[in-house]
């Protein structure tokens, strides 16, 4: 493990590192004024001074090492580290049909009212920020699916993608192709991470039987947890409502989509939300359900270590300069007096 760690360190100018033996110089000599002394054995022993001498020696070594290393330009190479956190791969499939721009009451928003798109934007945005290691993909669909953002852990980008979903929507609701693209967002080899497909829509549409087969195959392969957040407009038919007349997919697309999902044999829950609070509650529930370990990749950029090396060197140099400033001369105080006394002696003689 350790050699692998070391192998990530490098230098811009490795040949400068040949100067590193210079760091041993402070062990040999110190640039301090030396006071000649008659008998060192008579100096009282002082552990503190000895420790200080060792410290200054170490500071000298540190300063030289830091300077040489700093000049060599050390860095730690960038890398991708796979770690395990709590989270899930979430592929969001968001309805961009025109009706999403209406309120839950089925009107154009006015004043303080919030459209369905705005409410889901707000609440999904909070969801994205709440856990660090979730991976998100965002797909929108109306007549055709739109790939907004592939699977990523850059939550800022995800939030930006979600912010964009309350732009005025387009026409129809083509949920089949949207589901196919959202399934395609899951990567191939994500191991045992839990996968969540979150469908946010305010209506449903008939899925072509041929497309249904394709979807079944894809679901069987990927096996995501499927959540359908159904933003129900007041008065419109719910998921469980049987139509009064003939029970065909055309007459009750929501009910039949639900039935289709149930027939997929993947974990599936549908949330019928009739207001922003209900949406928030549903999201909280999803959040609490998806708590599995997930491997995620942390990208560590290449880091320049020269600043740190110079920092160490500066620390050592500051210690040395302080020591230099603290130096005193033994006989300095008397030197002037000695010079003053000399003529007097001559006169006396």
């Amino acid at each position: 493990m350790l050699p692998a760690e070391l192998a990530r360190f490098g230098a811009e100018r490795p040949w400068v590192l040949w100067l590193l033996p210079l760091a041993l110089l402070p062990l040999v000599a110190a640039p301090r004024r030396r006071a000649a002394w008659a008998d060192l054995a008579a100096v009282p022993p002082d552990p503190f001074s000895r420790a200080l001498a060792g410290l200054l020696r170490a500071a000298g070594c540190l300063a030289v090492t830091g300077l040489v290393a700093g000049i060599a330009g050390p860095y730690r190479a960038g890398e991708r580290v796979t770690r395990t956190g709590i989270g899930a791969e979430v592929s969001m499939l968001i309805d961009r049909s025109g009706s999403m721009n209406e309120t839950f009451a089925g009107r154009q928003p006015s004043g303080a009212e919030e459209s369905k798109a705005a409410a889901s934007r707000r609440i999904l945005g909070d969801f994205v920020g709440s856990r660090a290691h979730d991976l998100f993909a965002v797909t929108a669909f109306s007549t055709a699916p739109m790939l907004v953002l592939p699977m990523t852990d850059r939550h800022d980008a995800v939030r930006a993608a979600i912010t964009a979903i309350d732009r005025p929507g387009l026409d129809y609701t083509n949920v089949g192709r949207g589901l196919a693209m959202a399934l395609g967002q899951f990567g191939a080899a994500s191991g045992d991470a839990s996968r969540v497909l979150l469908l946010v829509s305010d209506g449903a549409a008939v899925i072509d039987p041929r497309v249904q087969d394709t979807l079944r195959a894809a679901f069987a392969k990927i096996r995501p947890n499927l959540y359908w957040l159904f933003l129900r407009t007041k008065g419109s038919p719910g998921i469980a409502d049987r139509p009064a007349g003939e029970d065909t997919p055309q007459a009750a697309p929501e009910r039949h989509l639900d039935l289709f999902f149930k027939s997929l044999r993947v974990p599936y829950r549908a949330f019928e939300a009739e207001g922003p609070e209900a949406v928030a509650a549903a999201i909280r529930q999803i959040e609490s359900l998806e708590r599995d370990p997930i491997p995620y990749v942390e990208v560590r950029p290449r880091r320049d270590l020269a600043g740190r090396a110079y920092g160490f060197a500066a620390f050592g140099l500051v210690l040395l300069v302080l020591a230099k400033l603290a130096e005193v001369d033994l006989a300095r105080g008397r030197a002037g007096q000695g010079a003053a006394r000399a003529p007097e002696r001559r006169m006396a003689a």
């Binding site: 110190a30 301090r32 004024r33 030396r34 006071a35 000649a36 002394w37 008659a38 008998d39 060192l40 054995a41 100096v43 002082d46 503190f48 001074s49 000895r50 200080l52 001498a53 200054l56 020591a323 603290a326 130096e327 005193v328 033994l330 105080g333």
Partner: peptide, 20 residues
């Protein structure tokens, strides 16, 4: 001196010693 850092060098060759 009361305070200061002195490096003493033994005249008879017994090495040097830093004294605070």
């Amino acid at each position: 001196p009361e305070w200061g850092l002195v490096e003493l060098e033994d005249l008879e060759g017994a090495g040097t010693r830093l004294v605070l």
